[in-house]
Structure formats: structure tokens, C-alpha cells
Amino acid sequence: MRQEGGTRRGPGVARSSRLRGFAAVAILAVAWSVVLEAAPVVRVTGNARAGDTVAPAKVTAKEAAEEVTSIVGLGDSVPAGSACNCDTFVSLIRRALAARQGTAVAAHNLATGGLTTQGLLDQVDSGSATDAIGKADLVIITIGANDFDSTSLGEDDCGPGAGLACYKNDLARLRANVDGILGKVRALQTRPRSRIVVTGYWNVFLDGDSARAKGATYVSNSDALTRAVNRTLAQTAGAKGARYVDVYGPFKGDGSRDDTPLLAADGDHPNAAGHRVIADSILSALAADGRR
């Protein structure tokens, strides 16, 4: 994602500690830690009792085929974990799947702060990315925010009333580049039942308190652009057989919920709680699709 003025973000700053108004997030965090730390790492069969020695259960061919053994994270500063001294959602997903499956799961997070869709198109052609994607069962992609310049938000034709006319070319380029990225990733995948997940954004620019400090026009225009970006990502993912995962709703509901407690101090990137929400959204989508 981008900072104000169109400059790309570098390494992050300390995450926000504000959790007011989000009691549910605190509950989710506690529940998540219980799952990660207490979940068994082996399957057992029978009516095991305390003190019994139990053997690992046999895994059916169908279960083995559905297990995730390797994850690759691709994209910008969001999956890279910028502005958050915490486990990224890619890491959280790896740990959760390993606990659920009772198997080892590898993760290669190749996300880079400031990356654009064109940058990711170039990256997937590189040797290290090509090799990792080829071995992965699950590729998770968050990309697109850096394709847009926030300095244009105050212009008359950049708002929802003008149909975001000033971003028309950027949105078309986003669609074409994401289509190319997904095509390349799909061609590189060699594992049976390999999956691609594409996430959306809660905002492609600042959000929460930081956005409101810039005024109502900033909030309205950035929200309208974010919704347009998410529609483009969802449509392109669907056309390529990838799974689109919405994170706008989990962060903001219908758009009226204050997501400040899920954001780092920069008002832009997710904090630890935000990464848990993204991870939970992706895990829920995988479960709904019949994956662990």
C-alpha cells in the first residue's frame, strides 16, 4: 500500500494498541491463541483416555490430497507485515493449518512493501518465486493498492459522483495486470488441488481515525475507490478460477464500522488484531470450499 503523496511505504512502525469498541476482536484474539497453542498436532483414533498411548490415525487418500503442505504469500506491504511487529496473516494461516491437519506446513512469504501489480508480474517470473509457487498448494495474493495515487483524491472527477473518472485507466490496468498475475501463477502450479486466494482491502489508502483527520471528501472518495478496486479484484479472480476473500466486511461491516482498532499507528496497515482478522477470513473461506 502507499503512503500519502504517492510514495511507497518502507518498513513499518509500531502497531496501534487501541481496541476500544472492538470487544469482539479481543475475544477473537483469545480464541485464536487457544487454537494455535492448544490444538493437537497429531490425529488420534478410538476413545483415548488420560495416560493412554495413542497412535496417529490413518489418513485417507482424499484427506491427504486436500492437505496444504506449502503456502506462498505474494503482494505488497500488507502480507509483508509492514508497520506491525507481529505474525503476519500468512504465518498465522500456516500455524492454524498445521494444527488442524496435524502435519508440517511450510510458508514462503515473498510479499514486498511498495509492490505494484506490475512489480508482482515481474516477480513471479523470478527464479525463487517460480520455484516456491510451483511447490505450493496454496498461494495467497494481496496486491493493487500501490497502483493508485492518493494525491488525486481531492479532484472533482475522483469521487463517486463522477464515477471515479480519474482512476478509470488505473482500474483497467489493475484488471489486466491481476489477470496476468493469476495466469502466470496458475501455469506455475504443479501440485494436485493447488489453490489461489486473492484478498481485497478495507481501504487502499488511510482509514479509521487517520482518514477522518483528512476530511469527509477523503473518506468518501477513498472508500468509493476501495470498493471499485475490490470489485475488480473479485471479478478478475473469479474469471481465473481463484478464490476472492473479502476483508472489507470483516474490518468495516457495511462501511459504517470504525476499524481503527485493527490498524497500526500509521492508520494504513493492519496491526496484530487486523492480521488475525484477515487470517480468519481466509481460513473460513478455505473451510467453506472444503479445505481444512
Rank of each mutant, 00 (worst) to 15 (best):
A24V: 10
L174M: 12
A31W: 10
P261E: 13
L138H: 06
N203E: 06
I196W: 00
T88I: 09
L174V: 08
G267I: 04
G21L: 06
G75Q: 05
S128E: 09
N271F: 07
T112K: 11
D131G: 00
E155G: 11
V229N: 08
D179C: 10
R20C: 04
A165R: 15
Q123K: 13
V277G: 01
S91C: 01
T45D: 11
D147G: 08
V68Y: 02
V13L: 14
F148D: 04
T226N: 06
L182E: 02
S82T: 10
A273P: 00
N169K: 15
G134R: 01
R95F: 07
A99P: 00
A132G: 02
G21H: 08
G290S: 09
T116S: 15
K184N: 12
K214S: 06
L182G: 02
L138G: 02
A65W: 07
S17R: 09
Q3P: 00
A239L: 11
G238S: 12
I282L: 03
A224L: 05
R43M: 08
P250Y: 11
S152D: 13
A216P: 13
I196A: 04
R9Y: 11
E67G: 06
G267W: 01
R195M: 10
T103D: 09
G10I: 03
P270K: 09
A111E: 04
